[in-house]
Design a protein around this nucleic acid. Structure first.
Lengths: 347, 347
DNA sequence: GTGAAAGCGCTAACAG
DNA sequence: CTGTTAGCGCTTTCAC
């Protein structure tokens, strides 16, 4: 910057104003502005962002903390967040927590050092304190996909209850009533809401299931072990006529388990799953799902965050957005042709 | 830092030395060191990284530029890079190019402003100049997945030629010789290598195909249009007995097109694809693939980059690593029921 | 063993 | 309309 100023016989201030687009505001002549801009172009000058951050305290960077970037849902979230962030002049730091509290905490602090201007966070269970600290320090963040009870926060989440409720209702209407529910152990809010939706749909239909038909799989196990667990569960619950997978990666594992157990879908067992992806659509039979409008979720989250950063939104007035899922009915939950609705409802 | 120093009646220098783990080297007493560390812990003090970057010129950040973070291949690359980077004390900036030159250029420059210490780049075709500039400025980078002709660079890529050659050989050995090859238009080195592998395997077997059996699909079209294109291609080439998809997302689209065209795999047409994923494994019939050891590729790339950043590697001695793919034979390329999968996979 | 002080590149208040 | 200047928080040389 100094060089530019020297070369044009201008003060550093002038150059700085031009760079920051304050020519007009500061009453700098068009000619000067142009001269400066041209030279900047020619020299390929880039303002040093470290200095700028140091001076302004703003890094034009947002931190994105997801559960697992290699999961399609989060990958697509990340892509959308990034695109939208760039549109608004922000860079994105991303990281995966692998659902580990400690990793999440470390990440939040690491990003804080890097002076991110705000966060989008898919929380893990035990980071309440960190979030409270962010609130105290007035560092903006938006919770995505899941909430932490007792935390005042801006958030964008899906109506998980509704999705699970409808998916379950769909199964019931198609004559499946002995439904196994496979979810994550120690799940966060989104998982609890899905379970609640499932249970209330059953309750409303006066269907009662033994508790053991809910299978909770710990996070972080190997795929192989999880498949084994699901296979064992299937063997122990031979009377089930449908399975509800509460999240996409469990669905994938479940399908593998079902294949290995040589069960036919849906004639032996129907399948529905939360979250859609290419695979569920192309599989034969294709899988009925509750689909999340991922792009919308991500866009809303980043837009909300940027609004907060720019103080267009009052700090103390938190804002929550709840997005509706859509149920996509496919082959995996269609009864076979000979099936009679009356018979099933006897159970 | 100033506060810490003041509170302990020490100079800022001393505190700085302790923070940077130079107590010993600088001959600071154990007692002092401990006192400082304890207070830092208690206060939750975090050194301001902007200031540090400004002073040292090192940001402990690496930039990861991929084609599309929502693609499983790149998502998994990102996850691995990130994990490995954190292990080494680095943060990761990531971005997707969507295979667009201009985006890629902008990203490289944006990251340069943010003083990344180095890059991992999946190049687009027209960023030769940018890379040359990086070389001139001695900013370390590692090319991943694909090369740019005429650029001196460190790189980690797959042996794409070999993968395609073997995949084609497999088809030929199983009696498929009228093989359609579906790839990206204007593809980068990795795509060219795959095509070359395909062609040379055919040539070696003395199989000659009309040119029109190679279909090149432009990047950036909608999925719908691409599926239409593939369907039209299938209709125009009814004599094909196998399809070779040169990359995973084309394979997915292709499978959808094949389903829509009501063709049976492999009896009507066999299918093989580059890159593996859950879907190809679980589909029925499952898809034969050339699988990339993604984790290894990512790990090698980040390790190589860090080595270069730390000057453990001479700047002017570029280092290239070529990783071997493995061929995973599945149902989609089995001739008919009498064909034995086990036999084939022995290789 | 420890401290003083310069300066990284930029912004912005203030002074002309 | 433009220039002077302080200072953001840290590292590091040099001095004691």
């Amino acid at each position: 910057m100094k060089d530019i100023a020297a070369e044009l016989n201008l003060s550093i201030t002038t150059v700085s104003f031009v760079i920051n687009g304050k020519s007009e505001q500061k009453g700098i002549s068009e000619a000067t502005t142009k001269k400066v801009n041209d030279l900047i172009q020619k020299r390929g000058f880039n303002p040093n962002s470290a200095a700028r951050i140091l001076r302004t305290g703003k890094s034009q960077t947002i931190g994105l903390i997801v559960e697992d970037i290699s999961n399609y849902f989060f990958g697509y979230i990340a892509k959308t967040v990034e695109t939208e962030a760039h549109k608004n002049g922000y860079n994105v730091f991303f990281s995966s927590t692998e659902n580990d509290d400690n990793t999440a905490k470390v990440l939040i602090n690491k990003m804080k050092n890097s002076s991110v201007d705000g966060y989008i966070i898919t929380a893990t269970k035990g980071i309440k304190e960190e979030l409270e600290k962010l609130n105290r320090e007035k560092i903006p963040f938006v919770l995505l996909d899941r909430l932490i009870p007792g935390i005042e926060a801006n958030y964008v989440i899906l109506d998980n209850y509704l999705g699970a409720y409808e998916l379950t209702k769909h199964l019931l209407q198609n004559g499946y009533s002995k439904i196994g529910f496979i979810t994550i152990l120690g799940g966060m809010s989104q998982m609890c809401d899905r379970e609640r939706g499932f249970e209330e749909a059953l309750a409303k239909a006066n269907v009662r299931l033994p508790a053991k038909t809910v299978l909770k799989i710990p996070f972080g196990e190997t795929d192989e072990n999880n498949i084994k667990t699901i296979k064992k569960y299937l063997a122990n619950n031979p009377n089930l006529d449908a399975l509800f997978f509460a999240t996409n990666y469990l669905g994938v594992l479940g399908i593998e388990a079902i294949q290995q157990a040589k069960l036919s879908v849906p004639s032996d067992i129907a399948v529905v799953c939360f979250d859609d992806n290419d695979m569920f659509r192309l599989l034969s039979p294709s899988i009925t799902v509750a689909s999340q409008p991922i792009k919308e979720i991500a866009t809303r989250a980043i837009d909300l965050l940027i609004k907060i950063i720019n103080k267009e939104q009052k700090e103390d007035k938190k804002n929550g957005e709840i997005i509706n899922p859509s149920i996509i009915i496919r082959e995996s939950s269609a009864r076979n042709k000979t099936y009679k609705l009356e018979e099933a409802s006897k159970n």
